[in-house]
């Protein structure tokens, strides 16, 4: 299967945020791959291999990102995990919005002709949760968002996707080509069934680490750099962030010494029981 994985870099979520001129200040940020995108790289690899013999890739996994030159670092890490090819579309982080990203990805889809686009369900920084759905709309493809499991069915013509929805798990079947956005549990041991991997095969929990060999190989894999102009993208942003503020900090309360004291406080002071 030919898969296009999309990837965004985000600032390390455990770092303290800084503000400057009503905007987030990323001057000291440690950038990393958005976790959900790391998970979709893992899912794409699982879909194109036999888990018992990962040396052979059946199909192709291309990872694409829109961002500044630095994004090469995150793309290389995806290549080191095992992806075959990377594409970077040159862009400044703050000139992008969901609409520009989706339209640019649509152009990449036209060019690369994948059977499946795998994306994170959410960029953990701006928390848009909308690029995948927009892309599916633009392409006129079916979509399966919030995937916690993917199974290739109908001889590779469709995928059966378990979706984490509010009420539980919804199972949806989509014909390929399709857009699938992944949720956290897509990297659990039995979440991805490629048809090649034996059904009873259990993956290690979580995304794989790059091996030393993988890291070395990453430097020799194809890495394309493109511009909006080359792709014919002229889209304008449909949203703009006007300002960013820190939310009012929640004051840490007191430690209570006993359960009796806790219950008394909840009853008399907080009046919640």
């Amino acid at each position: 299967m030919k898969i296009l994985v999309t990837a965004k870099r985000i600032p390390d979520p455990t770092q303290k945020l800084k503000l400057k001129d009503n905007a987030l200040d990323f001057s000291g940020a440690n950038w990393q791959l958005n976790q959900f995108d790391e998970y979709s790289v893992e899912a794409a690899l699982r879909l194109t291999e036999d888990g018992a013999n990962t040396a052979v890739r059946h199909g192709q996994v291309t990872v694409a990102s829109l961002g500044p030159a630095d994004v090469a670092t995150q793309l290389r890490s995806a290549l080191a995990m095992g992806a075959d090819k990377a594409i970077r579309v040159d862009a400044k982080d703050d000139e992008l919005d969901a609409s520009i990203v989706a339209k640019t990805l649509a152009k990449l889809v036209e060019r690369e002709k994948p059977e499946l686009v795998l994306m994170g369900k959410l960029a953990a920084d701006n928390e848009g949760n909308d690029v995948g759905q927009r892309l599916a709309a633009i392409l006129g493809w079916p979509q399966a968002t919030f995937a916690c499991s993917i199974q290739v069915v109908d001889g590779g013509k469709a995928v059966l996707v378990g979706r984490e929805v509010d009420a539980g798990v919804e199972v949806k079947k989509v014909q390929l080509p399709a857009v699938v956005t992944v949720d956290l549990r897509i990297v659990s041991p039995h979440a991805v069934k490629s048809g090649r991997t034996k059904p009873e095969f259990a993956y290690a929990e979580g995304p794989r680490y790059a091996t030393l060999k993988g890291i070395r190989a990453a430097n020799t894999k194809p890495f394309e750099q493109l511009t909006f102009a080359q792709l014919g993208v002229t889209a304008k942003a449909t949203t703009k962030v006007l300002k960013v503020e820190m939310p009012p900090a929640r004051q840490a309360g007191k430690k209570v010494g006993s359960v009796a004291e806790l219950v008394e406080k909840l009853q008399k002071e907080a009046k919640v029981i």
């Binding site: 969901a98 759905q133 709309a137 919030f146 929805v165």
Partner: peptide, 18 residues
Amino acid sequence: SVGKDLLPRVAGILDAGV
């Protein structure tokens, strides 16, 4: 989970911001 799945697709069709 329905709203988050549906509304961006509507926006994609209409080329609208979300």
